[in-house]
C-alpha cells in the first residue's frame, strides 16, 4: 500500500479520536454518548481492518473469516440484549 494511503488512514483515525474526546465533553444524555462513542469506535475499527489489516486486498476466503468474529459478536450481543431488554 502506498505511504500516502496509509498516512491518510492514520490522519483519519486521529481525527476520529479527536471527535471521540470532544464528544465526551459535550452535555449529551448518557446512553446517547455511549452509542455515538461506540459508533466512532466502530468507524476506527473499520478503517483499521480495511486498510491497515489489508482486508481491502484480500480474497473472499480471508474476508469471510475476518467478518466471522464480528458476526458472532453481533449474534451474542443481540440475543443477550433480547433477553435483558424483555425482562
Amino acid at each position: 500500500m502506498k505511504f500516502s494511503t496509509l498516512l491518510s488512514v492514520y490522519i483519519g483515525l486521529v481525527l476520529l479520536l479527536a471527535l471521540s474526546l470532544g464528544m465526551a465533553f459535550m452535555p449529551l444524555h448518557g446512553s446517547l454518548k455511549l452509542v455515538v462513542g461506540l459508533a466512532v469506535a466502530a468507524a476506527k475499527a473499520t478503517l483499521i481492518v480495511w486498510f491497515f489489516m489489508h482486508v481491502r486486498y484480500q480474497s473472499g476466503l480471508i474476508r469471510v473469516f475476518a467478518a466471522a468474529g464480528g458476526f458472532w459478536l453481533l449474534l451474542m450481543f443481540v440475543l443477550t440484549a433480547v433477553d435483558y431488554l424483555t425482562r
Binding site: S20, A24, F25, G30, G37, L38, V40, A41, K44, A45
Partner: peptide, 15 residues
C-alpha cells in the same frame, strides 16, 4: 479503541 469509549468516555463532563 473500543475500551476507550466504554471505560473512559462515558463519565461526567468536566475538563
Amino acid at each position: 479503541v473500543f475500551l476507550l469509549p466504554l471505560l473512559y468516555l462515558t463519565g461526567l463532563e468536566r475538563l
